[in-house]
Amino acid sequence: KTYTFRVRIVDEETGEEKEIEVTAKSEEEAKKAAEELKKKYPNLKVELE
């Protein structure tokens, strides 16, 4: 079973919002993916929905 999570990304500089879908095998995995995004884009606000 896989879970699909919507991750909302807000670029703090431009105020631009993007939504991406993360497919993960567990909620834990999705959280890790969101953390990776935060590391990659430090000025983005990442929200897991």
Rank of each mutant, 00 (worst) to 15 (best):
K32E: 11
A34K: 09
T4M: 06
E28N: 08
R8N: 07
D11L: 04
G15K: 03
E19C: 15
E21L: 15
K31W: 14
P42L: 04
Y3T: 05
K45F: 11
E17G: 04
T23P: 04
Y41V: 02
A24L: 06
K1A: 10
E27D: 04
K18E: 08
E36Q: 10
E21W: 15
V7M: 05
L48P: 05
A24N: 01
F5D: 00
I9H: 01
T14C: 05
V22Q: 00
V7C: 04
E12S: 09
T4R: 10
T2Y: 13
E36N: 08
E27L: 15
R6D: 01
E28R: 06
Y3H: 08
P42T: 05
I20G: 00
S26Q: 00
K38G: 07
E17N: 04
E12N: 08
N43G: 13
K31V: 10
P42M: 03
K40M: 13
E36M: 13
E28F: 08
K39H: 09
P42D: 03
E36Y: 11
Y3R: 05
E16T: 07
I9R: 00
K39C: 08
Y41E: 02
K39S: 08
T14H: 02
E28A: 11
T4D: 03
P42H: 05
E29D: 11
I20L: 07
I20A: 01
K18V: 14
E16G: 03
R6Y: 13
E27K: 09
R8K: 14
A30R: 03
Y3M: 06
G15S: 02
T14F: 01
I9C: 07
L44Y: 12
E29W: 05
V22W: 07
F5C: 05
L44V: 07
G15M: 03
E29G: 05
V7A: 03
I20E: 03
V22R: 01
F5T: 01
E19N: 09
T4V: 13
T23F: 14
A34G: 04
E12K: 09
E28M: 09
N43R: 02
E35H: 08
E16W: 14
P42K: 04
T2D: 11
R6V: 15
T23Q: 13
A34E: 07
E21A: 07
T2L: 13
K39V: 09
A30S: 02
L44W: 13
E49M: 15
E36A: 10
L37N: 01
G15H: 03
L44E: 03
V46E: 03
V22G: 02
K40F: 07
K32V: 10
Y41M: 03
T23E: 12
E16L: 08
V22F: 15
D11M: 03
E27H: 13
V46I: 13
E35C: 09
V10W: 12
A34R: 07
K31Q: 11
L44A: 14
E47A: 06
R6A: 05
T14K: 02
K1L: 10
E12Y: 08
E16N: 05
E35V: 08
I9P: 00
D11Y: 02
E36R: 09
A24H: 03
A24Q: 01
E13Q: 11
L44I: 08
K45R: 13
R6Q: 06
V22N: 00
A34D: 00
E13C: 12
E12H: 09
K38Y: 11
K1N: 11
E12L: 12
E13I: 12
Y41K: 03
P42S: 05
Y41G: 02
E49Q: 15
N43I: 04
R8P: 02
E16M: 07
E13F: 10
S26M: 00
V22H: 01
K38V: 12
K1I: 11
E36L: 11
V22T: 02
A33S: 06
P42Y: 03
E27W: 15
E35G: 05
T2G: 07
T2M: 12
K38E: 05
R8W: 15
E47N: 07
E49D: 12
L44R: 05
K45Y: 08
V10L: 10
K40T: 06
L37S: 01
A33P: 00
A33T: 10
R8E: 01
D11C: 07
E49F: 07
V22I: 15
T14P: 00
K32Y: 11
Y3N: 04
D11I: 04
E17S: 13
I9G: 01
E27A: 11
F5G: 00
I9K: 00
L44Q: 06
L44S: 11
V46F: 11
E13T: 11
A33R: 10
T2I: 12
A24S: 04
F5S: 00
V46K: 02
R6K: 14
A34M: 15
S26A: 01
E49G: 12
E13H: 09
K39E: 06
N43H: 12
D11K: 01
V46C: 10
N43Q: 07
K38L: 11
E27M: 14
A33F: 15
N43M: 08
K39W: 08
N43P: 03
R8D: 02
E17H: 08
K38C: 11
T4Q: 05
L37Y: 09
R8F: 13
G15V: 00
F5L: 08
V7T: 00
R8C: 12
E29M: 06
L37T: 02
T23L: 12
